[in-house]
């Protein structure tokens, strides 16, 4: 020990501020791969279908994914902190039901938009409490609440359909909010939220805390980050935005059935995972999720232009999800050799 002490002061290399820029790193970044994939999807679609690049068609395409994409944003944050919410589609069903009941009770159109988010928030509070206060695994809790929330919707609705929505409400879902460029409300909300989420995650102290929790929840707690409180509020946020998605979805299709948004949780989680958010927590970006949203949205839209049935598309999406995880794992194994 004696002989090593003096060397400390003498041998000192300057430490660079930033990691050196490397082309390989940049190209191998997940987001770069997604960009290439998106370009491929656009080219493929344009080549196969002359209707694809029509601005009105593209705008209509956003109707098919914007609501899911809105929920994918908070889901990305949840998965980032090592939690998951499988009940989002069921929350949408329950929120849509309550919106329907409110409409039947004569609640005026603008206020109808508040019902969904409020119901969703309540559902999120319930999930969050069970997971963070009682300490139950989120996957089991949300499988349970998935049955419970949709079950309640089913009990109330039976095999009935609520389709008595005022046009002042459905217009928001069915016609352009902005005429040129033609944009629907749901897509505008998604874009605004995506920017907000990206800024929060990548530019604020809160975002940094989320990464710390996802990478090492224990060290995060030791560093003064209120891990469980943050997780709790992320569940509430996820519920809230699922409720907002329900409001938009209900306005768009103008009706509520018990099977509304059935299976959406899988598509939403696929968007998040394909976007590069690690299911183990701690890594992922909002721009990655946005790219995945567009890739999935445009694949589905392009294939539906070609009259491919939706269920066949799910083969492609399922495979894409698995490949998106397998590829980096296999690549890493190859590189290690």
């Amino acid at each position: 020990m004696n002989d090593t002490s003096p060397s400390i002061a003498t041998k000192r290399q300057p430490v660079a501020d930033k990691a050196p820029w490397s082309l390989a790193d940049f190209v191998l970044r997940w987001e770069s791969i997604l960009v290439l994939l998106l370009i491929a999807v656009v080219i493929g679609n344009t080549w196969r279908s002359p209707y694809f690049l029509d601005i009105y068609n593209l705008s209509d395409a956003t109707q098919n994914f914007a609501e899911k994409a809105i929920v994918a944003l908070p889901m990305a944050l949840l998965i980032l902190v090592r939690e998951i919410d499988l009940s989002v589609a069921a929350i949408i069903a329950l929120a849509s039901l309550m919106t329907g009941l409110a409409a039947q009770a004569g609640v005026p159109a603008p206020l109808l938009f508040l019902v969904g988010p409020l119901v969703g928030m309540a559902c999120g509070l319930f999930n969050g409490t069970l997971v963070t206060r009682i300490g139950l695994p989120s996957i089991v809790v949300t499988i349970g609440t998935m049955s419970l929330f949709r079950g309640i919707a089913q009990v109330v609705l039976g095999d009935q359909v609520i389709a008595t929505y005022p046009s002042g409400y459905t217009d928001y879902g069915q016609s352009y909010l902005i005429k040129w460029p033609p944009l629907y409300l749901s897509f505008i909300i998604f874009l605004v939220l995506a920017v907000v989420f990206a800024l929060v995650l990548h530019r604020t102290a809160f975002g940094r805390k989320l990464y710390a929790i996802g990478n090492n929840p224990v060290a995060a707690r030791f560093s003064g980050i209120p891990v469980e409180r943050i997780r709790f509020w992320l569940f509430v946020l996820t519920g809230l935005l699922a409720g907002l998605a329900a409001a938009l979805l209900t306005a768009r299709i103008g009706s509520t059935r018990p099977n509304i948004a059935l299976g959406w949780e899988l598509e939403i989680i696929t968007m998040v995972i394909l976007g590069g958010v690690s299911i183990a927590g701690g890594s992922g970006t909002i721009h990655g999720v946005m790219l995945a949203v567009f890739i999935i949205g445009l694949i589905i839209f392009g294939l539906s232009l070609l009259n491919v049935p939706g269920i066949v598309i799910s083969v492609l999406l399922g495979t894409l999800l698995i490949l998106s995880l397998a590829a980096p794992l296999l690549l890493r194994r190859l590189l290690r050799r």
């Binding site: 940094r208 990464y211 710390a212 990478n215 090492n216 224990v218 060290a219 995060a220 030791f222 701690g282 890594s283």
Partner: peptide, 12 residues
Amino acid sequence: HQGAVLPMGIRD
């Protein structure tokens, strides 16, 4: 486990 967040950078 308790001190360092190993996958994160020095600065963070």
